[in-house]
């Protein structure tokens, strides 16, 4: 699969851009946290598209955001 570029993303209708980004993020997140991959992907998709594109190219920044989201989700679930 070739990398998702900003121009590819811009060519898609706005509504589909999040889905396109999600489709690329989901497998990467699933490798780290299979059980909550859908939820964590949804949480990350609230980040701006340009930053999400950068995260797809930089595993470190993606890992950092994923771990941040997982920590918040786990704290929330512990409270419930």
């Amino acid at each position: 699969q070739e990398p998702l570029t900003a121009s590819m993303l811009a060519a898609a209708p706005l509504k589909e851009q999040k889905q396109l980004l999600g489709e690329r993020l989901y497998p990467l997140i699933q490798m780290l946290h299979p059980v909550v991959a859908g939820k964590i992907t949804g949480m990350l998709l609230e980040i701006d598209n340009s930053e999400l594109l950068h995260m797809l190219e930089s595993p470190e920044s993606l890992h950092a955001k994923v771990e941040e989201a997982v920590a918040v989700l786990q704290a929330h679930q512990a409270k419930e």
Binding site: L25, Y26, G38, M43, L45, E68
Partner: peptide, 20 residues
Amino acid sequence: KPFVPNVHAAEFVPSFLPKG
């Protein structure tokens, strides 16, 4: 903009996953 994880964000469902 700092990233504030939102636990109420909708769950993402990839189109390549079988439905249900």
